[in-house]
Design a protein around this nucleic acid. Structure first.
Lengths: 115, 115
DNA sequence: CGCATATTCAACCAACTGGTTGACATTCCT
DNA sequence: AGGAATGTCAACCAGTTGGTTGAATATGCG
């Protein structure tokens, strides 16, 4: 999916879609299950998922009746790079950040407690 | 400015507004000068600047006839933290990451080296 | 087959967006 | 004072967005 900054940021601008992404962070989900906690129609959620797919933020794979939604975090990287590139991480100790990342990634116990 | 993720992301979703932010990265600018490189009316740019201000991404200060626009990179921090939770920080301890960010950004010695 | 499940499609609607133009208010300059 | 420069405001317009409902399309199950 060719996901421009336009489509990525505009997909992220909606709270429902951000909530969906947060849900998918925990696990892949079927469309119906994604829709369950929201107080809106399934069709509306289906549209939101189309937007997220268009932005490359998720991918959808049909297996039988069920369409599974999967987070595609790579799509956020471009947007993240854009933000950092123009200085938003100003003053941040990137070396410390790298060390922090390494520490996190090295400790397998932390990886399990995804909420 | 109370800038929600909604307003920040939706402000960033427009290429004209992102271009404006990139311009302001180099220096503070007057509204007319911001508008100059774009092929649209001054009023349209004025509206874009209002959106950016509403998102807290810039601030505007009137001095005489001229209204100066200034980048406010702090507004991106909240959005960035949110985004980082998905990409590189996938599966990590997000609370620890937030604490890390807070600690980094709270240290005034680091904040001075803004360019 | 016949029915329930899962998901999308199509038409519709109100609200918002991003642009236009022309008029207006300030401020600076001479 | 008069005129140019700087911005904003108001009205308007076309296109998009985010939601609805009802019908349609597959797929799985007994």
């Amino acid at each position: 999916m060719a996901a421009s900054l336009d489509t990525v940021f505009s997909a992220l601008a909606d709270p429902t879609r951000r909530a969906i992404l947060a849900m998918l962070l925990e696990d892949d989900m079927a469309v119906t299950d994604v829709a369950e906690p929201f107080e809106m129609s399934l069709a509306a959620i289906s549209k939101h998922l189309t937007v997220l797919t268009g932005a490359g933020l998720i991918s959808q794979e049909r297996r039988g009746r069920v369409k599974w939604c999967k987070l595609e975090p790579d799509a956020l990287r471009e947007a993240s790079v854009w933000m950092q590139g123009f200085g938003m991480m100003n003053g941040l100790d990137l070396d410390a950040f790298e060390r922090f990342l390494d520490a996190e990634l090295a400790d397998p116990s932390l990886l399990e407690e995804k909420e």
